[in-house]
Design a binder for these strands. Structure first.
Lengths: 203, 203
DNA sequence: AAAATATTTAATCAAATGATTAAATATTTT
DNA sequence: AAAATATTTAATCATTTGATTAAATATTTT
């Protein structure tokens, strides 16, 4: 019990700081976040943050890696699944993305703006590009429409899924209250795959 | 000539600072931008910045108002034009947006991330929501498809136009070099209106 | 040209902020 | 329980950074 107790507390405190850092960084971005904000959010002393993570920068790197995983992890397992059709993938990607984004609406704008702030540091370590580029998913699109660059359809899919969340602060006043916003996103889970199929089959 | 010379220099220096501030703020965001960065970019002394604009915050407000105008100004004149069809508006919005974004690719991510950082301050003063909500454009969409909330199509249009620029740092490695990226965006000027019409007419 | 005004600079201030230190407290091991 | 180790804190440091000041320079007006 003694060993367990210590390990529990250890993990709990470290995890509490990581969790707080994730919240504060995601909400404010690296430059606007204060280590004191994070300490307060975690309910601990400022020195503890440096005791566990050495620096703001180190803590940020850990949070960032986790956030990037969250944002692209939704895609990864689906893209190269040989057992699903293109249609199946469109439905699965859309449903998973919208479900995830309804829980983490500020994730895309955080990751994208931090990549903008530090393209060299972050853009290089993304395995998402290669993953996307050589995926079964993109090959399936290319087979279906050899006349159009398949990445156009990828941009459309990601754009229709992600943009309403990236632009949420601007769109919310147009779209209504939180519940109405949520309902629209739920509708899009059905609609986006239909629209994607339309684009792939006609035009 | 004497009067002109002073006025010229005056405007030139003030404008030089504004221009530098626009560049630095847009590239780094408010929190990561240093007033010394801006002064250096403008080729002037730090004190001059405060002499002309009183504070970083004030300078930022001026830059931000200008950037918001740039981002939404493309839409405004088209949305309520009674002399164009829905199809005509889709083509015009897409062409104008992509042309503008090719010149200012980091504009959307800057504006959206700053609105996230300060929703109360910035979101309220946007007249874009009301403009969009009550536009002829949205009414024309609603007439065409009474079965689907017209804002779905608005989100699709904006998503397909803006997202490739918002996500440029992530997409660039997939899409190729700068020139190839540009060519894809040029293609989208023709493609997006076609796709939008498809979605409006079928499904 | 002299006086008045506007512009620009170097030096400096004060507050914010990331980080450290040394001591206190709690936990685990012996 | 005592010793050893790990955790936590209050106080403090050093740097960064937005802002100011007072003096110098340039420009405009008289």
């Amino acid at each position: 019990m003694a060993k367990v107790k210590k390990a529990e507390l250890d993990l709990s405190t470290e995890e509490k700081i990581k969790e707080a850092a994730s919240i504060v960084f995601t909400k404010k971005g690296y430059g606007n976040a204060r280590t004191r904000d994070i300490a307060e959010e975690a309910g601990i002393n400022l020195a503890l943050l440096n005791y566990y993570f050495r620096s703001k920068e180190k803590l940020f790197q850990i949070v960032m890696a986790d956030r990037i995983d969250k944002l692209f992890g939704v895609l990864a397992p689906i893209l190269n699944d040989a057992s699903t059709t293109l249609e199946g993938k469109l439905e699965k990607i859309t449903e998973n993305y919208i479900d995830m984004l309804l829980e983490h609406p500020d994730l895309p704008i955080f990751v994208l703006s931090e990549i903008r702030n530090n393209p060299d540091q972050l853009s290089n370590r993304l395995q998402a590009p290669k993953l996307l580029k050589e995926s079964v998913f993109v090959k399936q699109i290319a087979e279906r429409r050899s006349d159009i660059n398949p990445f156009h359809f990828l941009m459309n899919l990601l754009g229709m899924n992600l943009f309403p969340f990236v632009a949420k602060p601007v769109l919310q006043p147009i779209l209504g209250n939180e519940e109405q916003y949520r309902q629209l996103m739920e509708q899009r889970k059905k609609l986006i795959p239909v629209w994607m199929k339309l684009m792939l089959d006609h035009g």
